[in-house]
């Protein structure tokens, strides 16, 4: 049971932070775009970069989940 739960928890909990982070990031970017639309292109580029960096934290959680799923952790049965 634990070997199924562990990866699920890893990705589930690990996705919370980046989710909030990406939300905040996009919020800020959209506000900035609304305030000065003439820089919308530049802001969008930086927003996407920021999203990629925030997303990569979720990806680390995903990697850990995949490791648990396909390789298994020492001490865990299976």
């Amino acid at each position: 049971m634990i070997e199924i739960l562990a990866p699920a928890l890893a990705i589930g909990l690990g996705a919370i932070g980046p989710g909030i982070g990406i939300g905040l990031l996009v919020m800020g970017a959209l506000q900035a775009m609304g305030r000065n639309p003439e820089f919308a292109g530049e802001i969008r580029t930086n927003m996407i970069l920021g999203i990629v960096f925030a997303e990569s934290i979720a990806i680390y959680a995903l990697v850990v989940a995949l490791l648990l799923l396909f390789v298994g952790a020492p001490g865990l049965a299976g």
Partner: peptide
């Protein structure tokens, strides 16, 4: 670690 796993994780998870 972050450089390596960011790339690996994204592509591997994309593949899956």
């Amino acid at each position: 670690i972050s450089l390596a796993f960011r790339l690996f994780g994204n592509i591997f998870s994309g593949q899956i």
